[in-house]
Design a protein around this nucleic acid. Structure first.
Lengths: 223, 223, 223, 223
DNA sequence: AATGAATGAGGTTTCATTCAT
DNA sequence: CATGAATGAAACCTCATTCAT
């Protein structure tokens, strides 16, 4: 392996850090059905295996970082919107969701894989730190949302986001479930049954819309 | 290992088949954080490793079968209720959900693990067959539900079940997420933040109730 | 790898167990300067890596077993001699030592490597069991020796063996010390210095003889 | 890492050289059960990893140097004593041994680890140089001892030191052997067996005393 | 049918050493 | 001289699956 430019300064290190995340992301996106091993990630990043371990404590932490970056992109824009001056409606929120969480081919598979993968392997400290960063984002986004939908009271924004995320993830898993191709095949074949007459993006759309409409209306669901 | 009586007749085979599922279920329930390996399952069932492969093509198929049995229990009772004579309300549905899906310690971890585990490892045929059995149950349950909630139109029952399941699974994963213990710790510590001020069973209850109330009311969410 | 005859019965298993030990021994003897890895051992035994782990919990336990077998051969013959009818003299003991511990090319390198290697890695249970088996042998051999050398009192036999072993090991390490070849080179070159004018087998001989003579004489060293 | 003053002059280099040895020694003493890695040594010395390699060809050479320094301290005092004017007795020698070799927590673990570690990794040149320095010390000490114990003839002093060292090292390894804690446990439990009824310092004391007494008496062991 | 011995691919992590800066 | 980022070989062990008995 050619010795690449060394990352001496903090900025350069950040670049390399991100390059590794990019590599992992590319691999994940390329074949969502499996988790790349560290050797592959290093290779994809044009680095040696050991170098990856200079930037990430373990493979799990690397995956968690990729995941977090995906979430972060979503939250940053949500927060920018809800804390900005313009009006924010349900459609805007759904559009953001699609753009950041549904369309990128890697987000959902990774999110789905992060459970079970990390619960066990990530040291408690990292897990807590992750959760705290997450909480900060959630809280800010939730509060912002509450400002835009006057019928929401304190805590409703966060709860809404939580349920949205549950739907996003849960529905995706149901569609990706056992052999998604099979799903398509059956949908085409059986045809009429409402069991197969759905596809993930549309169904998510409807479900989210129902959830939000039900929540921001005059008589919101209990927090 | 003692050589047990050979299962010659179909009935005996079914018994052995179920014994293996029972064993896997016990192990899963005993330590939900890990997936038992085949040797352990065989051991727990009082059989040899090779014997497991006489009844299940692969480990994945075995897990899928355990999962399906869990789902089946739920659907059988749902169908019995909605096709029975008595009245059925939202509370009844939520109670059944809790009883079959939330309370058994193994269901959710397993369901969660079934994605990603099976999507790629289970041969298409098995996957299709699984989906078809699933579809049949769903359809019957969905239709039954539609009869009990007059504002639902055709297909709404199935959609409602689908979204319910998404919430059940999605919320559980969020709570089990990265190191559930960390969650508890933070909940106790920070205290005030609505981000941590929730627990799975209660939140699921509220979310399901909101979903169903919103759906079965006069102006249901679009299918 | 060709599937070799399976070891079904206990006897066959013992054979395979020993075959693995033999393989490890051969490798150790072939290149005493390094510890073979498990893959090599398996290969040398004509087995797969995994098979080695069927017979030994870990690599350390395997090495410990090789070591113990070497010791065992020595003790078995010592015990046979001292518990037999014939007379036993110092020369006999020294001869046995040479035959079992000095001449086999693997014993000393392995013994030397067993410290530090195992202290950390072998679980306490195994270590205790090993020590207990060792103690039993030592005690029997020590008691037998005391019967043949009337001036020895209780415990002197064991102490004598202990010190003998210390000399065997300590002197060997000094000679094998930093690059044994260098030793030879210097011995030939400088010539006259008593520092280099010794070789392991002879020096061990003299040291053991002095130790035993001093110990079994009328006024033995304090236990 | 702060860029420390560069060592331009020979004296400064020696200081840095020793600082590295000190660091290695401290780490070894702090946790005798493991060999520190180069990064730790550098860190402990307040230097960068690469700097260590400016002063030592390899990790092995570094360890060898630490070891040699330990031996050197012993020999320097021994030589001072035996070449001094006062009388020197067996007790004095044993006292020196304890002070320099037994009591420092790092000496024996390191000495023990030096075999096998170095035999193959240290280039011949270094090994020869090491041995020659060692020989010079040994010879001087041996000769001095012969002057103080009139029954010793030429070469006996060196042989005595050699055997002493073998006992020191050999016995230590036997006591440190497989899981020293186990040893203690068994010693407390079984109680009566002479196999466990010993501890290193006392046994070494007795063994050395016996060796020296037997050697310096009128009829010494053959050289 | 049942067994369980044998297989061997597969992945993570450590760390001595090098060398661009 | 000093640094520390980068390297990549090396080694362990697990476990799903096969197949001789």
């Amino acid at each position: 392996m050619v010795i690449r430019q060394r990352a001496i300064q903090a900025g350069e290190k950040q670049v390399r850090h991100d390059a590794i995340l990019d590599a992992a992301e590319r691999l994940l996106a390329r074949s969502p059905e499996r988790v790349a091993n560290v050797a592959e990630v290093a290779d994809e990043a044009g680095l040696a295996k050991g170098t990856v371990y200079l930037y990430f404590t373990s493979k799990e932490e690397l995956l968690l970082a990729v995941h977090e970056r995906g979430i972060d992109g979503f939250f940053r824009e949500v927060i920018a919107r809800v804390e900005g001056d313009g009006p924010v409606g349900i459609d805007d929120m759904i559009r953001l969701t699609h753009h950041h969480l549904v369309e990128p081919p890697l987000f959902l598979p990774l999110a789905s894989r992060c459970f079970g993968l990390m619960s066990h392997s990530v040291p408690a400290e990292s897990a807590i730190a992750f959760k705290q960063r997450m909480a900060a984002r959630l809280e800010r986004a939730g509060a912002g949302i509450e400002r835009h939908f006057p019928h929401l009271s304190h805590g409703d924004g966060v709860a809404l986001l939580r349920r949205s995320y549950a739907l996003i993830l849960g529905l995706w898993q149901m569609s990706a479930d056992v052999a998604g191709e099979a799903h398509c095949a059956l949908a085409g074949a059986g045809g009429v049954s409402p069991v197969f007459a759905w596809n993930y993006p549309d169904e998510l759309d409807r479900a989210l819309r129902a959830l939000w409409q039900g929540s921001v209306a005059a008589a919101p669901a209990a927090r």
